Lab assay of single mutants.
Amino acid sequence: VTTYKLVINGKTLKGETTTKAVDAETSEKAFKQYANDNGVDGVWTYDDATKTFTVTEMV
């Protein structure tokens, strides 16, 4: 189990959250659901070296 981080650069929501998951794909699903639940829709990137997802909304 690995800890993954999500950085949110939204128009109205900014911040970070973490989750523990067995792999990046599992954490990505959880993070995308979290973003969707909070009305964040944007461009996703992933940095495997830091286990960090970033979602950026276009303004």
Rank of each mutant, 00 (worst) to 15 (best):
Val1Tyr: 14
Ala24Val: 13
Thr52Asp: 00
Thr18Asn: 06
Gly10Arg: 04
Asn36Met: 15
Asp37Val: 09
Lys11Arg: 13
Lys51Arg: 10
Lys51Asn: 07
Asn36Thr: 13
Asp48Asn: 09
Glu57Ile: 09
Ile8Gln: 00
Gly15Ile: 15
Asp37Lys: 10
Lys14Asp: 05
Lys32Gly: 02
Thr26Met: 10
Thr3Ser: 06
Val55Asn: 02
Val59Ala: 13
Tyr46Met: 01
Thr2Ile: 14
Lys32His: 08
Gly10His: 08
Lys5Ser: 05
Asp37Arg: 10
Ala24Tyr: 15
Lys14Cys: 14
Asp23Val: 03
Thr54Pro: 00
Ala49Pro: 06
Phe53Asn: 00
Leu13Thr: 09
Phe53Trp: 13
Ala24Cys: 14
Met58Trp: 13
Asp37Thr: 09
Thr54Leu: 05
Leu6Glu: 02
Val59Glu: 14
Thr50Ile: 06
Tyr46Gln: 01
Thr3Asn: 06
Trp44His: 00
Ala49Thr: 12
Thr3Trp: 11
Tyr46Ala: 00
Ala35Gln: 01
Val1Cys: 15
Ala24Lys: 15
Thr17Glu: 05
Thr54Gly: 02
Thr3Tyr: 08
Thr56Val: 07
Tyr4Glu: 03
Thr12Lys: 10
Ala49Tyr: 09
Thr2Glu: 11
Lys14Phe: 10
Thr52Tyr: 01
Asp47Leu: 04
Val43Cys: 10
Gly15Asn: 08
Val7Gly: 00
Ala24Arg: 15
Ser27Val: 14
Thr52Ala: 03
Gly10Asn: 05
Tyr46His: 01
Lys20Arg: 13
Phe31Cys: 02
Val7Pro: 01
Thr54Asp: 01
Glu16Ser: 12
Thr50Ser: 10
Tyr46Pro: 00
Tyr34Ile: 06
Lys11Ser: 10
Ala30Ile: 15
Phe31Pro: 00
Thr52Cys: 04
Val1Glu: 13
Thr50His: 05
Lys14Asn: 08
Tyr4Leu: 02
Thr45Pro: 00
Asn36Phe: 15
Leu6His: 01
Asp41Ile: 14
Asp48Thr: 08
Asp37Tyr: 07
Leu13Lys: 08
Ala49Asp: 11
Glu57Trp: 08
Lys32Met: 08
Lys11Met: 12
Val43Ile: 12
Glu57Phe: 07
Lys20Cys: 14
Gln33Leu: 10
Leu6Pro: 02
Tyr46Gly: 01
Lys14His: 10
Lys32Phe: 05
Tyr34Ser: 01
Thr12Gln: 10
Lys51Cys: 05
Ala30Phe: 15
Asp41Gln: 13
Ala24Glu: 06
Glu25Lys: 12
Thr2Cys: 13
Phe31Lys: 00
Phe53Cys: 03
Thr2Gly: 08
Lys20Asn: 12
Lys5Tyr: 15
Lys14Trp: 10
Thr19Gly: 05
Glu57Tyr: 08
Glu25Ile: 12
Asp48Gln: 09
Lys29Gly: 05
Asp41Ser: 13
Thr54Gln: 05
Glu28Thr: 04
Thr56Asn: 08
Ser27Ile: 08
Asn38Ala: 12
Val59His: 12
Thr3His: 06
Asp41His: 14
Lys20Gln: 14
Val59Asn: 12
Asn36Ile: 15
Thr17Ile: 15
Trp44Tyr: 01
Asp41Ala: 11
Asn38Arg: 14
Tyr4Ile: 03
Thr19Arg: 07
Thr19Pro: 02
Thr17Val: 15
Gly15Phe: 15
Val40Thr: 03
Lys29Glu: 07
Thr26Phe: 05
Asp41Arg: 13
Leu13Trp: 15
Lys5Pro: 03
Phe31Arg: 00
Trp44Asp: 00
Thr12Gly: 09
Asn36Cys: 14
Tyr4Gly: 02
Ala49Asn: 10
Tyr34Met: 05
Thr3Gly: 04
Thr3Ile: 13
Thr45Asp: 08
Asp23Met: 03
Lys14Leu: 07
Gln33Ile: 10
Leu13His: 11
Thr56Phe: 08
Asp23Ile: 03
Thr50Glu: 05
Asp37Ile: 10
Val1Ala: 10
Leu6Met: 04
Val22Cys: 12
Ala24Phe: 14
Asp41Cys: 13
Val55Ile: 11
Thr54Glu: 04
Lys51His: 11
Thr26Gln: 12
Asp23Ala: 04
Asn9Ser: 07
Ala24Trp: 14
Asp48Glu: 13
Asp47Thr: 04
Ser27Met: 06
Asp23Pro: 01
Thr19His: 13
Gln33Asn: 07
Gly39Trp: 04
Tyr34Leu: 06
Gly15Ser: 13
Ala35Thr: 07
Thr19Val: 15
Asp48His: 10
Asp47Val: 05
Lys29Tyr: 07
Val7Phe: 07
Val55Phe: 03
Ala24Gln: 13
Lys20Pro: 05
Thr17Cys: 15
Glu57Met: 08
Glu57Cys: 06
Ala35Val: 09
Thr3Gln: 10
Val43His: 09
Thr26Leu: 06
Lys20Trp: 12
Val59Phe: 12
Thr2His: 14
Thr56Met: 07
Lys20Gly: 06
Ser27Pro: 04
Val22Gly: 09
Ala49Leu: 12
Thr45Trp: 06
Thr18Cys: 14
Lys5Cys: 08
Asp37Met: 11
Gly15Met: 15
Asp37Gln: 11
Lys51Ala: 05
Gly15Pro: 04
Thr19Asn: 11
Asp47Met: 03
Val1Arg: 09
Lys14Thr: 09
Glu25Arg: 12
Thr2Trp: 13
Thr50Tyr: 04
Gln33Ala: 11
Glu28Ser: 08
Val59Lys: 10
Gly42Cys: 03
Gln33His: 06
Gly39Ile: 03
Thr18Met: 10
Val40Tyr: 06
Ile8Phe: 07
Glu57Ala: 07
Val40Asn: 01
Gln33Met: 10
Lys20Thr: 14
Gly15Gln: 12
Gln33Thr: 08
Asn38Gln: 13
Glu28Cys: 15
Thr2Lys: 11
Ser27Leu: 04
Phe53Pro: 00
Lys51Glu: 03
Gly39Lys: 07
Ala24Thr: 10
Thr52Lys: 02
Val55Thr: 02
Thr3Val: 13
Trp44Met: 03
Glu16Thr: 14
Lys51Gly: 04
Trp44Cys: 02
Gly15Ala: 13
Thr50Trp: 04
Val43Pro: 03
Ala24Ile: 12
Val55Arg: 01
Val40Gly: 01
Phe31Leu: 04
Tyr4His: 02
Ile8Cys: 06
Gly10Asp: 03
Lys14Pro: 06
Val40Cys: 05
Gly39Asn: 10
Asn38Cys: 13
Glu16His: 10
Tyr34Asn: 01
Gly39Leu: 05
Thr19Ile: 15
Asn38Ile: 15
Val43Phe: 10
Lys20Glu: 14
Thr50Arg: 05
Gly42Tyr: 03
Met58Asp: 12
Val43Ala: 07
Tyr34His: 04
Leu6Ala: 02
Met58Leu: 13
Asn9Tyr: 13
Lys29Ala: 11
Thr50Met: 05
Tyr4Thr: 03
Val55Pro: 00
Val40Pro: 01
Ala24Pro: 10
Phe53Val: 00
Thr3Leu: 13
Ile8Lys: 00
Asn38His: 14
Asp47Phe: 04
Thr19Lys: 07
Leu13Gln: 08
Asp23Gly: 04
Thr17Met: 15
Lys14Ser: 10
Gly39Cys: 08
Tyr46Leu: 01
Tyr46Arg: 01
Thr17Lys: 11
Ile8Met: 07
Lys51Leu: 09
Thr12Asp: 09
Thr56Ile: 07
Glu16Phe: 14
Glu57Gly: 05
Thr26Ile: 08
Asn36Tyr: 15
Ile8Glu: 02
Ala49Met: 10
Asn38Trp: 13
Met58Thr: 13
Leu13Ala: 07
Lys51Phe: 09
Glu25Cys: 13
Asp47Pro: 00
Ala21Tyr: 05
Glu28Phe: 15
Val55Gln: 00
Asp41Met: 13
Gln33Trp: 05
Asp23Trp: 03
Ser27Glu: 01
Val55Glu: 00
Ala21Arg: 03
Lys51Gln: 09
Phe53Arg: 00
Lys51Asp: 02
Val40His: 04
Val59Pro: 12
Val40Ser: 01
Ala35Lys: 02
Asp48Ala: 13
Ala49Gln: 11
Tyr34Cys: 05
Thr52Phe: 01
Asp48Leu: 06
Thr17Gln: 09
Thr50Val: 05
Lys32Glu: 03
Asp48Cys: 07
Ala49Val: 11
Lys5Val: 10
Trp44Val: 01
Lys32Ile: 07
Asp48Arg: 07
Asn9Leu: 14
Thr26Glu: 12
Ala21Gly: 07
Thr12Glu: 09
Lys11His: 12
Lys20Phe: 13
Val22Gln: 10
Val7Lys: 06
Thr56Leu: 05
Thr3Lys: 07
Lys29Arg: 13
Phe53His: 03
Gly15Trp: 15
Gly10Cys: 14
Ser27His: 02
Val1His: 10
Ala24Asp: 05
Asn9Arg: 11
